[in-house]
Amino acid sequence: MLELSETISVDEIAVDLPSRIHEVTAGPVARAPDRIALVEDLASWSYRELEQRVGEIATVLSSLGIRAGDRMIIVKRLLEYKSVSGMEQLSRGPLRLIAVAGAPLDLNLKLRVEKEFGLPLLNGYGITECSPGISGVRFDRPRSDQAVGTLLPGVEARVRTIEGFPTVSGEVGELHVRGRNVMLGYYRAPELTAKVIDSEGWFNTGDLARFDGDCLYIVGRTKEMIIRSGFNVYPAEVEAVLSSHKDVVQSAVVGRAADGNEEIVAFVQLLPGSCTTPETLMHFVRPQLTSYKRPSEIVILDALPATSTGKILKHKLAESLREGGAVPAVQTPEFRRQHI
């Protein structure tokens, strides 16, 4: 039986987090205000000038209702904690803004978070090579779907087929972006750079996307797309259905080669103590997914392999299938009182 700590609150999690962006530049400004802090496109800024710019940004944020001292926290696992502990409601405390990025947003999770905290969950999208922001849902225009919002100022985007041809409006294709936020290239890797950035500066993100008007939707990764019996299957769609089950914490779907075709294999992490079986989950998804989207196999793990930020390492799951089903060892996290 999992031993639970006493009630945890948002206030407790946030206690040791940095409170203001000014803390980043305050020290250098005091010691060497005229030292060069940033160089871009042959222009340079001193620490003094950078501090001034930060102040201007803070003024704009303040005008939008974001106050100095507001903090960002990770709340994903709080819902899991609530389910295990039997708590009726999580304390919101001073929490005023919730945002998510880094992986496809599960609509069921979005609804649960918004119901729990009484705040909209804002979705955003970015990639390391783009510094990293590309788009986001504005806090003054929240959405009820999985959109990643509108493009950030200065960012251009287009959607192309895998062969590089323009797509019809609303059609899914590879997302290409262009702007000052796009990297110059990979370090000492000109050939790799040439594969992702063309002569006009368009960067191929490798993500599959579509536009509805000016609103961007990310549907998956080109490399993760599964082609089953000639049909495209986007893992995020299957994962969303699996994760809507009351006992599922998170899921990850990968493809497995099978006689010239691809099978769908789903890895699932359940709430501690759950008695849900793969057969139960198969029965659950059957009426919600058309036949070619249904998993051929569902594997239940204590925990899914993930990075320190919680991003699931799908390549490790795919490797385990190629290596004969040897599931990668993962240390199961425990719920305990701690400061982050």
Rank of each mutant, 00 (worst) to 15 (best):
M72W: 04
L151K: 02
E200T: 01
G126E: 02
T205K: 04
P295H: 07
V265R: 04
F211S: 08
M1R: 03
L90D: 10
S5L: 10
T280K: 09
M282F: 11
A26D: 14
K316N: 01
E200Y: 01
A30M: 03
T167V: 15
V233L: 01
R48Q: 09
G93E: 09
K110H: 05
L184A: 12
D34N: 15
K246I: 11
G273N: 13
E191I: 13
F203K: 02
T276Q: 03
K311S: 04
A209W: 03
A32G: 02
S131E: 04
G86A: 14
R48S: 13
V196S: 04
L4R: 05
I227Y: 06
A101D: 05
I218F: 03
E279C: 06
R138V: 00
V285E: 03
D214W: 02
L50A: 14
S199A: 14
L122G: 12
V113G: 08
L61K: 08
V29I: 15
N204M: 03
L2E: 12
T307C: 05
P94H: 12
P305L: 08
L97E: 06
V100Q: 14
E88A: 15
I98K: 10
C130Y: 03
V148T: 12
S85D: 10
H315L: 05
R112Y: 00
G55E: 00
S44I: 01
E237Y: 05
G273Q: 11
K314H: 12
